[in-house]
């Protein structure tokens, strides 16, 4: 699981162009949206595409994203339980 969390942090930094953020600065339970990493609704769309492309997970209900993308912990747990690749 810790490998997956590290991978997620790297992907988020790269795909969302978080140039000034390093992997060490993202705690596993930091909120990704709002006051934490400060991601926004466009980033949420990028993350939904990333789940589909990299882990074969299609979010049937985009509202699910609110819980799944709460933190690296919640994302990793959801991916581990639902991934198809």
């Amino acid at each position: 699981m810790s490998e997956l969390k590290l991978e997620l942090k790297e992907k988020i930094i790269e795909q969302l162009n978080l140039e000034d953020v390093s992997v060490d600065e993202i705690a596993d339970n930091d909120p990704l949206f709002g006051e934490g990493l400060g991601l926004d609704s466009i980033d949420a769309l990028e993350l939904i595409v990333m789940l589909d492309k990299d882990y074969g997970i299609k979010l049937a209900d985009p509202k699910e994203g609110r819980k799944i993308f709460e933190s690296i912990d919640t994302m990793a747990a959801y991916i581990a339980a639902n991934r198809s690749n």
Partner: peptide, 13 residues
């Protein structure tokens, strides 16, 4: 590259 799938919004915008 992605066979017309997985298109992200930022580059489109």
């Amino acid at each position: 590259k992605n066979d017309e799938q997985f298109l992200t919004p930022t580059r489109f915008i």
